[in-house]
């Protein structure tokens, strides 16, 4: 499953997504106002406190999401170690970790629908200019819906390959995967059309 929203209900789940996103932007900018490792370390501790307030399961899940950051942190450490700028490296690493940990809290505590609602709000000026924004919202939802399905298509093709070949699946399953994806796209287009397609203008005011 691709959803990153935590099933553990925390107090932060009940805050409106718009406020969380605004706070995230504000706090991230604030992180760039200081170069003191002490201040940034304190900020990181505060964010860690946010995770703690969500309980142990929430904390563990959050740390798992952040684990993918370690190659970047390692690269920063190596680079700044090599050039002898320890303090600068520490500042960058702390800032990166704090900002992403904070963003991750917002992701984990906001439902996709609410995020899309915020986006719809922000795109309102474009709608005022007569541009269609419904497609953007739809596109985000559809990426989330179909990414697992595309992965599954690939797995199925690989399995079908292995059933008839002693060797590992090669680049030759790429074309059939593309063909399947195009075929799926046709079906989804039909499903969208069955439910009215992208009907924008008349309903835009109600969103």
């Amino acid at each position: 499953m691709i959803s990153l929203t935590s099933p553990v209900e925390t107090w932060a789940h009940r805050l409106p997504a718009g406020i969380k996103l605004a706070a995230l932007s504000g706090l991230t900018v604030t992180l760039f106002l200081t170069d003191r490792p002490g201040a940034l370390g304190a900020a990181l501790l505060a964010v860690f406190g946010l995770y703690l307030s969500g309980g142990p399961v929430f904390l563990r899940q959050g740390l798992r999401h952040l684990r993918m950051l370690w190659p970047f942190l390692l690269l920063i450490a190596l680079w700044h170690g090599a050039t002898g700028q320890w303090q600068a490296g520490l500042v960058i690493a702390l800032r990166l970790l704090t900002a992403l940990a904070l963003a991750n809290v917002v992701t984990m505590t906001s439902r996709l629908t609410d995020m899309i609602a915020v986006l719809t709000c922000l795109l309102a000026p474009l709608r005022g200019m007569g541009l269609q924004t419904r497609a953007v919202e739809l596109a985000i939802a559809m990426v989330l819906r179909f990414t697992p399905m595309l992965t599954e298509n690939g797995r199925r093709l690989a399995m079908s390959w292995r059933a008839r070949s002693p060797r590992r699946p090669s680049w030759r399953i790429v074309m059939p995967m593309v063909a399947l994806a195009l075929d799926d796209a046709d079906h989804v287009a039909e499903a969208l059309r069955a439910r009215g397609g992208i009907l924008n203008d008349r309903d835009a005011g109600k969103d």
């Binding site: 959803s3 989330l144 399905m149 799926d184 079906h187 989804v188 039909e190 499903a191």
Partner: peptide, 12 residues
Amino acid sequence: FQNPDHQIIFPT
């Protein structure tokens, strides 16, 4: 449709 995977558009 015959195949619900061809019909479902959204993640939830």
